[in-house]
Amino acid sequence: MSNIFSDNNQIGVVSTFSELINTNFQGEMNAICWNRNLNGDFKEIVSQLHLKENITEVSIEDLLSLQLSENGNIAREIILNDLQLLTDFGASPSLNLLKNYERDEELDFISTDVYSFHVDRSTIGTNTFLCTYHGAASDIISNNEVEQKILIPEIREKLKELHNGSEAEFETFLKEYYFDLHYQPKPNAKPINLGLGHLWKLAVDHPEQEVLPCVHRAPVENDGEYRLLLIC
């Protein structure tokens, strides 16, 4: 399939949900895109939803209660179908209306919030699925274009000062506070924006994973615009 992601070794491109769940990661490929050009007015849905907190989970009942135009209804049917497909697959999808995520401003030399490039970790074999229907979309980046933040000497030294314990305990400390999940882009690195409407499967760090986990980040939101994001 010819599209903007096809010539990237990190990304596999498929054209159906069945292919998305049945295509395995391999080699450098740790992100798979169900490439879609969606019809429908997702902005209309966002304009009618009510933000209760900075991140508000939208239920199926919330969606069904909206009075929508024909194009709004097309968008709603797409979202409901995506939720159903993932639920039938055995995932637990969540539809979120997002103003912004919480920022980590506790330490000035390392950030561990979702705006920082990071990987997801699980104790069981799983994947991260996500689709942005409206608003700014997430980024991924190739593993060879990033450096683990805990391996950057000046950051590592400051973390050791913060820990103030033995070397063996230090490694546990790094995992316990998720410092080891975060990455710094190398100079001239080129993040890839995941775009709107595509449903993505990203590799997670877990014991059975045979590829490197996918490094990704949440985008800085556009001014005055909420994001509508499916994630599980």
Rank of each mutant, 00 (worst) to 15 (best):
Glu28Asp: 14
Asn30Met: 01
Asn30Tyr: 01
Asn30Leu: 00
Ala31Cys: 15
Cys33Tyr: 08
Trp34Leu: 15
Trp34Cys: 10
Asn35Arg: 13
Asn35Cys: 14
Asn35Thr: 11
Arg36Val: 14
Arg36Asp: 09
Asn37Leu: 15
Asn37Cys: 13
Leu38Asn: 06
Asn39Leu: 13
Asn39Pro: 13
Gly40Glu: 10
Asp41Asn: 15
Asp41Thr: 02
Lys43Val: 06
Glu44Leu: 11
Glu44Gln: 15
Glu44Trp: 12
Ile45Gly: 03
His50Lys: 12
His50Val: 14
His50Met: 10
Asn54Lys: 10
Ile55Leu: 12
Thr56Tyr: 10
Thr56Asp: 11
Glu57Asn: 10
Val58Asp: 10
Val58His: 00
Ser59Asn: 05
Ser59Leu: 06
Ser59Trp: 05
Asp62Gln: 07
Leu64Tyr: 04
Ser65Asn: 10
Gln67Met: 06
Gln67Trp: 02
Gln67Arg: 05
Leu68Lys: 02
Ser69Asp: 14
Glu70Ile: 03
Glu70Tyr: 04
Asn71Gln: 14
Asn71Pro: 07
Asn71Tyr: 06
Ile74His: 11
Ile74Gly: 04
Ile74Glu: 08
Arg76Trp: 04
Glu77Ser: 08
Ile78Asn: 09
Leu80Tyr: 02
Leu80Thr: 00
Asp82Thr: 08
Asp82Glu: 12
Leu83Glu: 04
Leu85Met: 08
Leu85Gln: 10
Leu85Glu: 12
Asp88Val: 04
Phe89Cys: 01
Ser92Tyr: 11
Pro93Asp: 02
Pro93Gly: 00
Pro93Lys: 02
Asn96Leu: 15
Leu97Gln: 01
Lys99Val: 05
Tyr101Leu: 13
Tyr101Trp: 15
Tyr101Val: 12
Arg103Trp: 11
Asp104Asn: 14
Glu106Asp: 10
Glu106Ile: 07
Leu107Asn: 09
Asp108Arg: 02
Phe109His: 01
Ile110Trp: 09
Ile110Glu: 10
Ser111Arg: 14
Ser111Gly: 13
Asp113Trp: 09
Tyr115Asp: 02
Tyr115Gly: 03
Ser116Gln: 13
Ser116Met: 07
His118Asn: 03
His118Ser: 03
Val119Trp: 08
Asp120Ser: 03
Asp120Cys: 06
Thr123Leu: 13
Ile124Ser: 11
Ile124Phe: 01
Thr126Asn: 07
Thr126Leu: 04
Asn127Val: 00
Asn127Ser: 15
Asn127Gln: 12
Thr128Asn: 15
Thr128Leu: 15
Leu130Ile: 04
Cys131Met: 01
Thr132Asp: 04
His134Phe: 15
Ala137Leu: 03
Ala137Tyr: 03
